[in-house]
Design a protein around this nucleic acid. Sequence first.
DNA 1: CTGTTAGCGCTTTCAA
DNA 2: TTGAAAGCGCTAACAG
Lengths: 345, 345
Amino acid sequence: MPITIKDIARQAGVSVATVSYVVNKTRWVSPELTERVLKAIEQQGYSPNAVARSLRQNRTKTIGLIVPDSSNPFFAEIAKGVEDAGFEAGYSVILCNSNASLDRELVYLDLLQSKRVEGIIFIAATTQVNQIRPIVNSGIPVVIFYRDIPGLEVDTFRIDNFKAGYLATRHLIELGHRNIACIQPASPETASGERVEGYKRALDEAGLTWKDQLMPRGDNRVSGGKAAAQQLVDSGLPFSAIFSANDAMAIGAMRTLRDLGYEIPQNVSIVGVDDIILASYTEPPLTTVTQPKYEAGCQAIEFLIDRIEGRSTQGPRNVELEIQLTTRGTSIPYTATSELRRISK
Amino acid sequence: MPITIKDIARQAGVSVATVSYVVNKTRWVSPELTERVLKAIEQQGYSPNAVARSLRQNRTKTIGLIVPDSSNPFFAEIAKGVEDAGFEAGYSVILCNSNASLDRELVYLDLLQSKRVEGIIFIAATTQVNQIRPIVNSGIPVVIFYRDIPGLEVDTFRIDNFKAGYLATRHLIELGHRNIACIQPASPETASGERVEGYKRALDEAGLTWKDQLMPRGDNRVSGGKAAAQQLVDSGLPFSAIFSANDAMAIGAMRTLRDLGYEIPQNVSIVGVDDIILASYTEPPLTTVTQPKYEAGCQAIEFLIDRIEGRSTQGPRNVELEIQLTTRGTSIPYTATSELRRISK
DNA sequence: CTGTTAGCGCTTTCAA
DNA sequence: TTGAAAGCGCTAACAG
């Protein structure tokens, strides 16, 4: 039996309306009454019931954030941006991990709608995002990350994955590498599949060819990178550099190669994509293609709030996040030792 | 103007009560009516308003999670556990980053209370956590991490920080190290201050002495570890091993030492505490004292729900999380080369 | 300048 | 087996 507005009104000897008005400073109230109200609030430790307010005003000041895995540093950065900028604007965020499960995405989408969040930031785990349609049609603003939903009026944030792959590969080519392997994502349908296309294009333009045996697939995690690197070595083909479709796999590959006696970058150069936090802390630090994460999170919720508060009513905006090559320690010019193989220890 | 229960009742030709009963399966309704209701729901795309329900039932099925920084992998792991176990139990979580600001903690505490969350998991940024008192007294269940609040009826989760420092240092002593430095947290009042006490005790027991010059302070971040390592080297005193009060500083120290020409672990062994994700990915991987994070998050929300649902009404439970030494690559036996200094590059 | 009151959408008692 | 209606706590007309 928590304290309600009535209790305060009673003690202060005013109407509930007056209490509401002083709490919200939403109309002029005489100093005397104001003081009596504030005193009563203070004394009783009154905390206005936001649930009731939300029902009445039809505003929850809450948004939902759906990510595949909030403990993945990449998404954690985005989430932090969302939370920070949301806080500034007076919005709370409900954190939802889909764990890359479509089912769970659906459950959460329903839940968020039911809780009447005023907007949703959706980082879908698969390209199959049509599930979002009913929500969008119901009129609640949505921002989608890294996915394209043709024919849907939503703001989207994404990077040019093709360009990312292209930039990374081009960098290796400019360093003089000719035999450049590629660690691909498990499924070409994933967003980072396009990164591989960028890789191919860069090779093409340089008059180089790509070979299936030098393009093993991984599961997008560190473990997948390890397995892929093993395949690469097992193929027996020469290579002096690797483009990995993401940092996690690049890091896995680094570990395996080192375990097999290769030195990085002396024997093989590696470039990733994403610039996850781990990338700065490998030894040597990983050269990668950076994209904004925290900032993207901030911007996403700002877009959302713009729509929520009716500040932006035009058609969908598609933001292309800026990417850039961050040269660190894993990529060096091709030299005679680049393809040297150490004896396995 | 979203669809309400009335709209469904009207179309189905039943009372709103009946709609409510079929939606919640909370009393028997004849198959005919049930079907009519479900059809109407389907057709109109009705989503029950959880806000109204919460107001009526006085239950929000929501908990608040306050962490210093959700993008810090350590807290991110805990948060993931909270979210996962919360989801299983049907609870949503509002994510709150205090950014280590007392002010922001207070704002969030107020906000959560206002939103009528049913429980709060609070990872305070400072030891100054009395701010939580009013909330606890208001009757809402709270779980506190890593802090002690004498005289307050809250469940707490913590690790034995003294033991962590002791275990780590003991390990180095057993490896034959005699000159063991310590990188301390900036403020001895922080929880990890006790870790330093454990360090001292281990030295004492081994008949070793500690010197202030070999105990520089850092700011608990990677950068602080770098500065501290520099101080250590500048002191000119010999040391063959370092105990760092946390992993972040240990990682910073590793980088600086390596930059100064030391090899790790050949010239100096390092042990940290926390086992943050980065610790597995340094080169070599960091020896550290591990504590459960994801599991602790799960358990914390389960405790909370036990109280919320009245399943546990006894006095406060104080959980001591199990810690253990995880030996990886940065700690090796003392040898003649352990104190060798490389020429700075 | 302040108070009265309807009503937000839902659950649940009570009555039929 | 179902429905009518009160009421959760608050806001915001409207009235005075």
